[in-house]
Simulated assay, not measured.
Amino acid sequence: MAPLLSSIDIHVTSRRALDERLEVAVKKLQDLAILTGTHGILVARNKPGHYTAGLSDQVPFGLTREVIR
Rank of each mutant, 00 (worst) to 15 (best):
residue 1 M to D: 01
residue 67 V to I: 14
residue 11 H to Y: 03
residue 15 R to G: 10
residue 18 L to G: 05
residue 2 A to S: 06
residue 16 R to I: 14
residue 17 A to P: 00
residue 6 S to A: 13
residue 38 T to P: 00
residue 23 E to P: 00
residue 46 N to T: 15
residue 11 H to E: 07
residue 14 S to N: 03
residue 1 M to A: 09
residue 63 L to M: 04
residue 2 A to T: 04
residue 25 A to D: 12
residue 43 V to D: 00
residue 24 V to P: 00
residue 26 V to L: 09
residue 8 I to R: 15
residue 25 A to K: 07
residue 1 M to N: 04
residue 45 R to G: 07
residue 50 H to A: 13
residue 37 G to H: 02
residue 46 N to A: 15
residue 10 I to K: 01
residue 37 G to W: 02
residue 5 L to N: 12
residue 14 S to K: 05
residue 22 L to I: 14
residue 29 L to N: 06
residue 68 I to Y: 10
residue 31 D to M: 12
residue 55 L to Y: 06
residue 26 V to C: 06
residue 2 A to F: 03
residue 29 L to I: 03
residue 38 T to G: 05
residue 35 L to W: 06
residue 10 I to Y: 03
residue 1 M to H: 06
residue 30 Q to G: 07
residue 56 S to K: 12
residue 42 L to G: 06
residue 51 Y to Q: 04
residue 29 L to M: 07
residue 24 V to G: 04
residue 35 L to P: 00
residue 35 L to V: 10
residue 57 D to V: 10
residue 41 I to G: 11
residue 69 R to F: 12
residue 38 T to E: 13
residue 13 T to V: 10
residue 64 T to L: 03
residue 14 S to L: 05
residue 22 L to E: 13
residue 44 A to D: 08
residue 4 L to Y: 02
residue 61 F to I: 07
residue 40 G to S: 08
residue 22 L to P: 00
residue 53 A to E: 05
residue 31 D to H: 14
residue 18 L to C: 06
residue 4 L to P: 01
residue 9 D to N: 13
